[in-house]
Design a protein around this nucleic acid. Structure first.
Lengths: 177, 177
DNA sequence: GGCCATTTGTTTAAAGTTCAAGGAGGGGCC
DNA sequence: GGCCCCTCCTTGAACTTTAAACAAATGGCC
């Protein structure tokens, strides 16, 4: 992510061809993206750490569980929904379990399997803290964008997200690592 | 970030008023945003860890230093540019120093101050790895968006980024913590 | 000069994440 | 059945980040 000083002559006999550097305009876009994403992540992490006592990712796990049938999901499926590794999920669920917000349950069909189940306490924490979190997201994002921009953002991020999880076998996806 | 089951009656005498939940459309936008941001972060972190032996944030620090006059920046200024806390930066610089990619230097004007200086080795690492990183960013983002979308993305993220770093005193910004 | 609040940067410990390795079960194939 | 490979999930160590506390230097004010 650096601009080259002078562009070397093209068509040389060098093995390593000149990379397609980002244009100035692309660089600006990229920097705003990184800044916005970094600050937003920090902001929401802090908001939730303060108000719910957990990082944003953990909160997201509780939300996924709350939305699932019977408020439970297999570990791998939850990892897939949250876009994280199974290892990270294992540690996270261990912590949430210690808080009493999630409990594990064996899967009857597959003895290797585990369900993460949202407890009533976990559900209650969500009820208590969801409004504040929604407010934070609104203030930081939706209240600042007009409907057109909101639509664009969704579309753009969908393209990026889908591009990063190809359906082919052998793809390096977090939950398969 | 949860949908309420039924919307309670408005204008009640309750203290806690009903939060403005996200509409279905807003929820979709938000989820694509989080998915895309999470996957992109993971993807670039992994690419750089593999090819440059450091996380994305650390790489970004080297880039900022490379762009600075005399390839050096005061710690706080670097933290500000990278949108991270000074504590985090201290640890990061310590690690990069161990790698020989950055060195610290005392500030002559202010005896509390420290400069982080990019070493020649650090600069070389950047030269070696920048093309691969640019490729990764291109493949994940720019090659998938038309010019209109790129422009929108920059504008939208600029709005979000600026909204999260108000100029007022007392703002909770990472580098002031 | 002396005092005090603020700024600068680091340090320690706790919390979270990544990485590599591994135990255990499933499922195909002979 | 027995074998082999794959999937599911966990574990422990190394690394990174956060949170809180701190020392030293600055700058304003008297």
């Amino acid at each position: 992510m650096k601009a080259p000083a002078p562009a070397p002559t093209e068509g040389s006999t060098e093995k390593a061809r000149e990379p397609r550097w980002l244009t100035d305009e692309e660089q600006r876009v990229w920097r705003w993206f990184m800044e916005g994403a970094t600050l937003l992540d920090d902001h929401l992490d802090r908001q939730l750490q303060r108000d719910a006592g957990m990082p944003h990712v953990y909160y997201g796990l509780l939300v996924k569980l709350a939305e699932a049938p019977r408020r439970r999901l297999r570990m791998t499926e939850l990892a897939m929904l949250a876009k994280i590794t199974r290892s990270r999920l294992s540690h996270a669920i261990a912590r949430l379990e210690k808080n009493g917000w999630v409990r594990r349950e064996d899967c009857p069909d597959d003895k290797r399997g585990q369900f993460a189940v949202l407890t009533e306490e976990g559900h209650e924490v969500l009820r208590q803290t969801a409004p504040g979190h929604v407010d934070a997201v609104r203030q930081a994002v939706f209240d600042r964008l007009d409907p057109e921009q909101q639509k664009s953002l969704g579309e753009i991020m969908r393209i990026i997200a889908e591009g990063l999880q190809p359906t082919e076998a052998g793809a390096d996806l977090p939950w398969l690592r």
